[in-house]
Design a protein around this nucleic acid. Structure first.
Lengths: 202, 202
DNA sequence: CGTACTTTTGAATCGCATCAAATCTGGTGG
DNA sequence: CCACCAGATTTGATGCGATTCAAAAGTACG
């Protein structure tokens, strides 16, 4: 649809909101927000990678969302406080939109709120796919599901590394490495240019 | 917030939309819609239980969502076709809202679209929790997570049975039975009245 | 060159899926 | 009222696959 993430943002937001946006460079390791904090901005990822995470019940952080493009934590639009951390895991370019102006625009501009609802619908569907994926028991099944549903004709960017992918898939990085290796050996998969590519079915 | 699901619906929808709603009784086994079909209505579950499911890659159906109250498949609002099945798994009372009127109301009534966005935000958060839950590896951890996040102070309705719960948790029913039994024996859990109850920490 | 991190390989263990079967349950019809 | 059936529930045994712990090799960066 859009070759460029910024185009997408411009198509979504009304013009007067765009003027209030600030583009920031967020190096890996930056914390955009932490749990409990009051949201003042919405973050739109242009390039790079950001994860939403929560300290897990047993200690290990759980990744709730991994975003390489698009809004992060849309759900916090009307929340008085964040319920998770926003952590930058790869050098990123991010557009910051003041949340108050955004809320006002949503209240007055019906065309905009329609587009916003469309975006949320997309996110809901994406999350349902992720749930479906996580309910698969085998690593290979999850990886195939990821490549088939999120990849562009079977090509999926590795992004911030296999470890980060493993987290998103809900498996250990060792298991994912072994799975990728086995599938490469089978010829079901190739790796290169920072992409995983499904081999076309013969 | 609302003791009654219908109150919730009335608070959400504008009055003129309520008049277009039809309440239907859907016995267990009813299929509300199937994949590929064009959405003409939105379904609001008043009582009972409905699941969104998709035929899994390996055959076994995958449960994407289990709703006992509230809108089902909100994400299909603007979709030309459903991407999953809506299956009634317990005798249910359901309100059917014509999707066209709903769309028109969202386009013109900003207060309503604001409430709709709030609802979608809640759904996004719920789905993220589900992802978090499914990324836990042990059955007991998933069950605890479910009771802690979705239960009312640790009490969670079993609803349409353990098998249905097992599907939602992404585990086999045998594993869940065994887990519940073990936790009951430990005194961490009690069962009764169709509820699972977490024992208060001593 | 050293440090920190990712990637990779190895081996042991454990929990869950799987298959099988018995029991229990509610509902139906004779 | 009982026989019967379909489904849910429960228990048992087995094997696989992922986790886990450990450690080596590779890589980026100052």
């Amino acid at each position: 649809m859009f070759t460029n993430a910024l185009q997408e943002l411009h198509a979504l937001l009304p013009k007067h909101l765009i003027d209030t946006c600030v583009e920031i460079a967020a190096p890996k390791g930056t914390c955009l927000f932490t749990s409990g904090e009051k949201p003042t901005h919405m973050f739109f990822i242009v390039t790079g990678e950001v994860v939403l995470e929560r300290p897990g019940l047993q200690g290990a952080p759980v990744i709730l969302q991994r975003t390489r493009r698009g809004f992060m934590s849309e759900a916090s639009l009307k929340s008085p406080s964040y319920h998770c951390h926003g952590q930058v895991v790869a050098d990123s370019k991010i557009v910051r939109v003041p949340i108050r102006a955004l809320r006002e625009a949503l209240d007055t501009d019906t065309a905009f709120s329609g587009r916003w609802i469309t975006m949320l619908n997309k996110e809901v569907r994406r999350l349902r796919l992720q749930c479906e994926r996580l309910s698969l028991t085998k690593v290979q099944a999850r990886l195939l599901h990821l490549l088939e549903t999120e990849g562009e004709s079977g090509a999926y960017p590795i992004g911030a590394g296999i470890k980060s992918m493993a987290g998103e898939l809900g498996v250990t990085h060792e298991a994912l490495y072994r799975c990728i290796y086995a599938m490469e050996k089978d010829g079901a998969l190739t790796r290169g240019d920072g992409f995983l590519r499904l081999s076309p079915r013969v």
